[in-house]
Design a protein around this nucleic acid. Sequence first.
DNA 1: GTCGTTGCTGGTAGCGCTGTCAACGATCCT
DNA 2: AGGATCGTTGACAGCGCTACCAGCAACGAC
Lengths: 365, 365
Amino acid sequence: MGRKRTKSGKIRLAEVAELAGVSPITASRFFRNPEALSVAKRTRVESAARELGYVPNLAARALASQRTEVIGVLIPSLTNNVFSDVLRGIYDASEGSRYSIQLSNTRYSILQEEKLLRLFLAQKPAGLIVTGIDQTTESRAMLEAADCPIVQIMEIGPNPVDMMIGFSHYDAARAAIAHLFAQGHRRIGFVGARMDPRVQRRLDGYAAAMKEAGLFDQRLTVTTATPTSVTLGGALFADLIAREPAIDAVFCANDDLALGVLFECRRREIPVPDQIAIVGFNDLEFMASSVPTLTSVRTNRYEMGSTAAAMLIEAIEGKRPEKPVLDLGFTVIERQSSQAQRPTASPRAGEWVAAVQNDSVTNDP
Amino acid sequence: MGRKRTKSGKIRLAEVAELAGVSPITASRFFRNPEALSVAKRTRVESAARELGYVPNLAARALASQRTEVIGVLIPSLTNNVFSDVLRGIYDASEGSRYSIQLSNTRYSILQEEKLLRLFLAQKPAGLIVTGIDQTTESRAMLEAADCPIVQIMEIGPNPVDMMIGFSHYDAARAAIAHLFAQGHRRIGFVGARMDPRVQRRLDGYAAAMKEAGLFDQRLTVTTATPTSVTLGGALFADLIAREPAIDAVFCANDDLALGVLFECRRREIPVPDQIAIVGFNDLEFMASSVPTLTSVRTNRYEMGSTAAAMLIEAIEGKRPEKPVLDLGFTVIERQSSQAQRPTASPRAGEWVAAVQNDSVTNDP
DNA sequence: GTCGTTGCTGGTAGCGCTGTCAACGATCCT
DNA sequence: AGGATCGTTGACAGCGCTACCAGCAACGAC
């Protein structure tokens, strides 16, 4: 006689085991480690499960095994294009795996991050993806004490908690400035918003490059803690140019700001790049189709997410990567907005259409 | 003498109950329905839990109670700005509640949606948020059979599965066209990408408005199944104007396309709005700061997400909303790009700066 | 032939929590 | 005063799965 069904009418592992003529524990093993079964039992359990339409109860599994199949992801923003690309990578890489993604938004607050981390860790996640390297001391301690693999994403730095994948925002900013130098620009402004740690490091890279060239001037830097936007880019640029009308280039901490600067230039009839060059950061899609097209520093956001999730899953399953720190690099994509200064004051608009994209400076470590 | 601790060293409900001097079940009730306890026991359990730093084991809770505290969310895209705003609303509204969000990406495939739905439902979610009203028959049946509250978001239509929150894309498109008519435009093109059901309904609204005015012409419509982008907007507009050079306005199915059209006009030195007016859809932030500023149909995306999550949580807890279908409406934000046609062929750029934003046409049902 | 050793399988005993039901005293009504 | 009702509490029995360990057969080494 058969066992009695569960109240909810759902198929349990026991039913599958019974149909397959094996013990429940053998059926259980089939789902966790099929190689441990003989081929005969394996196929019997498989067909029994399929026939009954068995779906494992994750709560029971988590309770019995004392661990979940959840990957926690802590990111600072849900709106920022940058993170939506990273997230897409994470979701894509986790799809098809047994792990599910649990997302939380720190809103750029490391205190909030600490709180969420505590919450996550209490549920014993299988793995954790956290943004950046600027955790609180408390968070850092929790991460180090956590008994699950952890990937820090978005940037690289010394002392990884575990694994790390990103690139140097400092070097990327320096490369952008080097490109502007190469194009003959000297008085280069910096426009930044939000000023999270990564933007701050871009500012540091800019400042270092300028200082080395003997060109640094505090008054060329305009920043705000306000969240970034296109409109804000225009406003910050207005501030900058009011203070320093003689600038010949602007390095923007992200592409939204760069687009705002471009619009503001257009509003003021300032020719770009002939009077002012513009360089953005991230290389969002629209940078390639604006008029003029906008130079930017391409970052590998999708790869960052997908690689992080893939590395994490490997590590969860015991296969730790050979190199725990991965530098994904960046590429300066040179476009019209930062072309070399020309003698002619104002080219015809049609001229831009003919211009081709230059070679790019890639940093692939 | 105390009970023995759990192997993992974690605090269990039993420990809390013991310290509080109550039975475990009373302690359990404290977390689920504190009102059912006497004030004395309530405070004792509360302080005991705090003192021990008790964190409930969700897996055990889910197993024992036969239900999870997970809200499943099915959206078609993670990259689209539209959905990131909706998501932010959902996450914000769920924060602080006991429910956690489980996100999945259908990639605009209703078959994928069906698959994910099956997966979700098998885990007995507390509630479900699904995008749109175009599920497969199978999906529809599963949704109707599900024993949890469900909210359909992004648009409204007949026969809600349960609750519904959105707006009429058809009406919104008609309002946009009505605005263009009011500004004196007649030969209005339509540019659309991806052509998911909501974009299709915008096209239907456009077509209906044009037909009623006796102005519909199939050749004014350019669409593609390709995912949307700014660059694509330029390309589609190039197609459109090659086919129909005499158009005087373009209604774009979203703002990215509109921006692409604007750039393409600039590239071709077509004055906007004097030769061609542009209207977008969604009113993303950059629309207000482009040059010229771009008219768009504002949609309440954040509110859609936050209200959907709030309604769902209320419904899960037994308080069903008085009205299960909520129309969040839309607003035509009139900006420079669709101003009335003028006699002067090409205004000075500076003129735009002075222009003020017009009154707007709001649809608040 | 005996004794590991390996590969596979099964039994037992929970994981930490909650649903159900019964019990109890207090309060209220007739 | 007696009974009904309400509010509060606790005992019991799992929820469905897996960790742990034992058992058993087959095999090879000595």
